[in-house]
């Protein structure tokens, strides 16, 4: 790791100022898990690290009187996973938080850090590869190993977004708050992420000096507000791992009939991947094995696998089918053995 100055701002204004003064050479530290990994491998070499933990109040999790929920960017994944009311009202979000890493990682890792973490692509993480995302001129997945890479939305880079929390939050209609030199922005989390065809150097709209401070979830996406949600994740190593594929669904049901749906995939695209195709295939239908399988097929209809990741297509289909059926209490979709 290169040397850096460690800055402890007392408030957000000081933090944004320190970042702005760093002119792109200052990095934000929250839990630090992703940041330190990047610094150790010299993927980034900031001259200054701004510790957000000295800014008070960024780690709060609180329900508003109207039933909506606000989660501070510095809330740990452990605190999200263990929050009883959050788990009841937005189960997909609690399940996603619980699925991240190990106990040790969840104790330190934060919501903001999980949403802003950089790709796990081995070429991106390799100090030896100057890939497209690091200013080089080739995405090595197109000539090398692509087994963990994108089947949807790829090009010119084929990373997948590693966040588990993002698909769950987007399924629950989350908004994100960003504070920066130009003031405060509040936008749907879905619009926070951008494909590599739009922006290559980063996966989000964040500009230097901008800080994610909070995500908020509407009461309408909660159990109390009539929405059921669920998150499923498939990983190669069951004890702790990034997702090969994950899916979050949020459904409004009248009996077994679906009146509104959000279906968001993780691990398949350079951003969390909302499938409006799957959503429109299930809305106004009753949820059962056939309709769920149809929705799952619709989600993957446009998938274009690379040399080594075709397995993700049936995997994603199965997870979507299961998530829809389980959310509607219609079994798991698995054939009886």
């Amino acid at each position: 790791m290169r040397r850096f100055a460690f800055i402890e701002p007392p408030d957000l204004a000081a933090a944004t100022e320190a970042l702005a003064r760093g002119a792109g050479k200052a990095a934000i530290l929250a839990g630090g898990l992703d940041l330190l990994g990047e610094m150790k491998d010299r993927i980034i070499e900031p001259a200054a690290v701004v510790n957000l933990k000295t800014v008070r109040g960024l780690d709060a999790i609180r329900f508003e009187p109207d039933g909506s929920l606000r989660i501070g960017a510095l809330a740990t994944l452990a605190s999200v996973a263990a929050h009883p009311r959050l788990g009841r009202e937005y189960p997909a979000v609690a399940q996603a938080a619980q699925s991240v890493g190990s106990v040790e990682i969840r104790n330190v890792g934060t919501v903001g850090g999980n949403l802003c973490q950089r790709p796990r692509c081995w070429y991106y993480r390799s100090p030896l590869h100057k890939c497209l995302k690091k200013g080089g001129d080739v995405c090595f997945t197109t000539v090398g190993q692509s087994r963990y890479h994108a089947i949807l939305g790829g090009g010119p880079s084929y990373i997948v977004h590693p966040s588990d929390l993002a698909p769950a939050l987007i399924a629950c209609d989350a908004r994100i708050t960003v504070v920066g030199p130009d003031g405060t922005k509040d936008l749907p989390l879905e619009q926070f992420y951008v494909l590599p065809s739009v922006r290559l150097d980063h996966e989000t709209i964040l500009k230097p000096g901008e800080i994610v401070t909070e995500v908020s979830l509407p009461a309408s996406a909660s159990a109390d507000g009539g929405t059921r949600s669920r998150f499923l994740k498939f990983r190669e190593k069951d004890s702790f791992d990034f997702a090969l594929v994950s899916v979050a669904v949020a459904l409004r049901l009248q009996g077994n009939s679906c009146s509104a749906a959000r279906v968001v995939l993780g691990g398949v695209a350079p951003t969390p991947w909302r499938s409006k195709e799957a959503e429109s295939a299930i809305v106004d239908r009753s949820i059962g094995p056939r309709s769920a399988a149809k929705a799952a097929a619709a989600a993957l209809a446009d998938a274009s696998p690379m040399s080594h990741n075709e397995y993700k297509i049936p995997l994603a289909r199965t997870l979507i089918t299961r998530a829809l059926l389980e959310t509607a209490d219609q079994g798991t979709g698995l054939a009886p053995s």
Binding site: R3, A5, F6, P9, A14, E17, A48
Partner: peptide, 15 residues
């Protein structure tokens, strides 16, 4: 310890 400008908080290092 480079002195931090007033109001921006404490700076440690890089040394």
């Amino acid at each position: 310890r480079p002195a931090a400008p007033a109001g921006t908080g404490r700076t440690l290092g890089p040394g």
